[in-house]
Design a binder for these strands. Structure first.
Lengths: 138, 138
DNA sequence: AACTCAAGTTAGTCATAGCTAACCGAAATT
DNA sequence: AATTTCGGTTAGCTATGACTAACTTGAGTT
């Protein structure tokens, strides 16, 4: 994810999610609310992201992701989704836990690990079929 | 791990590993070297950990983990080991990658996820036996 | 027109965590 | 004995990221 800090990654994701896919302008207060920070923090973060060209603003100073910002958001969400599926479907963690952990793990795991999890996600369905057969035989 | 920052957790682990299980005094420079930070940073970190009662010092100001510090170190290393085993044995990641990722994930995953990984580590061996049977039948 | 209120920014503070440069003290070298 | 060197600390700086309090500005209300 380029040179973005984890904090900035959270902001990007929040903007994406609040703007229904990056196509609406989002208010600073809503971002603050979404992430549980003060509007000052959200405002400053948006200034930084605007400097980096990841969000743009309208006359009311609301923000929207630029194409580059949106690309990053989608990449992050994909990453997050792979991890979530693994935690929920494979490990059987409940939605809440799986989601929280996916959002945290997303920032620290390597591409290799992500790929391995991804392969595992599909492999697991086959194994379940295998498990079924084994169960029958027992 | 109580109220320790990730950074402080790294320092605790470094002290543990350099002291061969927490029973030798460790030099500040060696901690700095191990973690790739300046001796100033390591020195300050040790002062903080000493305040928290997690390390104690000798006349030369070298540090050793207190029982509480050692307990934390061992808990962290156990956690790390469970994750490592999963990444290496189950996902098949190479040692280097598995270790790096384990050290990073260690700080962000919940107890539920850890337990799930742990169960999975043992379940996986059974599944491998199952896989063998299935393979024979194909 | 005057007022209120909500949204956003600015100014100023704090904590964490890193850094370099300079200093102290004790051990080792010459 | 004088000097160097090594290990550790102190002082002072930087960046990130959070906060509160106070201000601005524009929109809606009275």
């Amino acid at each position: 994810m380029s040179d973005l800090t984890i904090s900035m990654q959270h902001y990007i994701k929040a903007v994406y999610e609040l703007s229904c896919g990056g196509s609406d302008y989002v208010r600073i207060v809503d971002i603050a609310e979404e992430l549980g920070v003060s509007k000052t923090s959200a405002s400053l973060a948006m200034s930084r992201l605007a400097e980096k060209g990841l969000v743009c603003r309208n006359e009311q100073r609301q923000v929207m992701l630029t194409p580059e910002g949106e690309t990053l958001a989608v990449l992050m969400l994909d990453k997050s989704a792979i991890i979530y599926r693994f935690l929920h479907n494979v490990l059987g963690l409940e939605e809440e836990t799986a989601n929280t952990n996916a959002c945290a793990m997303e920032h620290v795991i390597s591409v290799e690990t992500l790929c391995a999890l991804c392969r595992f996600n599909s492999r697991e369905s086959k194994e379940h079929r295998c498990e079924g057969k084994c169960a029958v035989k027992k």
